[in-house]
Design a binder for these strands. Structure first.
Lengths: 102, 102
DNA sequence: TGCATATATGTCATATATGACATATGATCT
DNA sequence: AGATCATATGTCATATATGACATATATGCA
């Protein structure tokens, strides 16, 4: 539950330094989580820019509002696959994705 | 089985134009598959550069040789998550990943 | 030829991600 | 206060990804 806990903290604004400051994450875990958070953030930005509510967006990508909320929170239960597919559905190109994570 | 079929073709060098030339993939599907293929390719490159066999690499990331082969083939049964985790295990940074897909 | 070593492919039991639901929290109104 | 809308959180049945195994297909070398 380490990663899960930290993700929560991050999402709620508890982040102070970067990544592995808080719990004892391996560098690999840190990179992975940072990546997911980058995508989450990008997703939220894009959805907001499109003036879509989570409910509307959920309908668009055929999922539920609750899952959208979890995507944007970087919840451990959501895969990078889902984040990427959702971003693509919002029109993101490979370059957009590259920018989001770099 | 559309995407699966096409991935096979691509991986075997049948690719002529780009992405959606072959089967009737939606633009979103195309982007998703291209992304996976980029990561697959990058993974194979990195592993080769490290002079690791699939068996050795499999041990390193705690999976099996067969799964490694599937990762590198862009098999539909492998997730972006797994590809990303594997790349990170080989030392790839977020920037490296960004470069790989852009 | 036979014998390694490397990679590919098919299948399957189990682990994990998924959508959906209920419900909670929060913000903004009248 | 209550009402409405947006977002968050917890849980669960089912779908999908996973590692592992067997086996196939190279490729090189004695």
């Amino acid at each position: 539950m380490k990663a899960a806990k930290r993700t929560k903290l991050e999402a709620n604004g508890w982040k102070i330094g970067s990544a592995d400051e808080f719990l004892n994450l391996s560098p690999e875990e840190s990179v992975y989580i940072e990546l997911k958070l980058s995508l989450s953030k990008s997703l939220k930005q894009r959805r907001s820019k499109e003036n879509l509510s989570q409910v509307e967006f959920a309908k668009l990508v055929k999922t539920s509002q609750s899952r959208v909320a979890k995507m944007e929170a970087g919840d451990p239960s959501v895969s990078i696959d889902l984040l990427v597919k959702s971003l693509i559905a919002l029109g993101a190109s490979p370059k957009d994705l590259a920018n989001a994570i770099s």
